[in-house]
């Protein structure tokens, strides 16, 4: 009998990248985008999330475990490739390399980001959305941090969008060259749109007036 563990691991890695990790990325961008509406709007979005029952359980089983699996199996994939863009400088080969590079950057960024923001609220026995918003604005008020966050966000978005393109090929959804080309354009558009949302949120937190801004909607 042949051994299909490798196949199942690889398919699991591909699936987890979309559900739940990719889904969480979209959710996270959505929540953070409230920051562009002012501090109160952001706090409202955070309180909504914190109001979800069994939140810790969801965090562990729908975010942490899938993310850890995706990250570590991903590193294993990264270090097994022999990159050869100098020999084959085609678009897809560049995407192949950038997918691996952005994967590693995103992993480093996520660890840093978790340490700076999530871990502090985790340590706090009574975190409030107000503290979180102030702390985040404080961290992102630094120019260098804001730029590094920008790089991290763009890497994550690229990894997600190009990963979605690969996911569709790997599961046999986009089979022919034309379907794959259309998919390329769809994910390029997605990359631009998601980058815009991500960067807007960073810019909002970076704004020194963030704490004082009164939401335009209120």
């Amino acid at each position: 009998m042949s051994n299909q563990t490798d196949f199942l691991n690889r398919r699991l890695h591909s699936l987890l990248g979309v559900i739940p990790v990719g889904f969480f990325l979209l959710e996270h961008f959505y929540t953070n985008y409230f920051a562009t509406q002012g501090k109160e709007a952001f706090e409202g979005a955070v309180n909504f999330l914190w109001g979800i029952p069994i939140l810790r359980f969801l965090e562990i089983f729908l975010i942490f475990i899938p993310l850890i699996y995706h990250a570590f199996y991903g590193l294993y994939i990264v270090f097994r490739a022999k990159n050869n863009v100098s020999q084959f400088g085609t678009f897809r080969n560049y995407m192949f390399v950038i997918q691996r590079v952005t994967g590693v950057i995103t992993l480093i960024f996520i660890l840093w980001h978790l340490w700076q923001i999530w871990f502090q609220t985790f340590l706090d026995p009574t975190p409030t959305a107000n503290e979180l918003a102030t702390e985040t604005a404080n961290i992102l008020s630094n120019n260098i941090t804001a730029i590094l966050y920008g790089i991290g966000v763009i890497s994550a978005v690229f990894h997600f969008c190009n990963g979605m393109w690969s996911f569709l090929v790997s599961w046999g959804v986009t089979v022919g060259p034309r379907a794959q080309l259309v998919s390329t354009w769809v994910w390029i558009v997605a990359f631009v749109v998601l980058s815009y949302f991500g960067i807007s949120s960073i810019v909002a937190f970076h704004d020194p007036n963030f704490a004082n801004n009164v939401s335009a909607l209120q």
Binding site: D6, F7, V169
Partner: peptide
């Protein structure tokens, strides 16, 4: 079945070289 065993199809990384 044989194609998805170890070292098979799943190892493709879509570089399309």
């Amino acid at each position: 079945e044989a194609l998805i065993s170890d070292g098979g199809l799943q190892q493709c990384g879509n570089s399309q070289n």
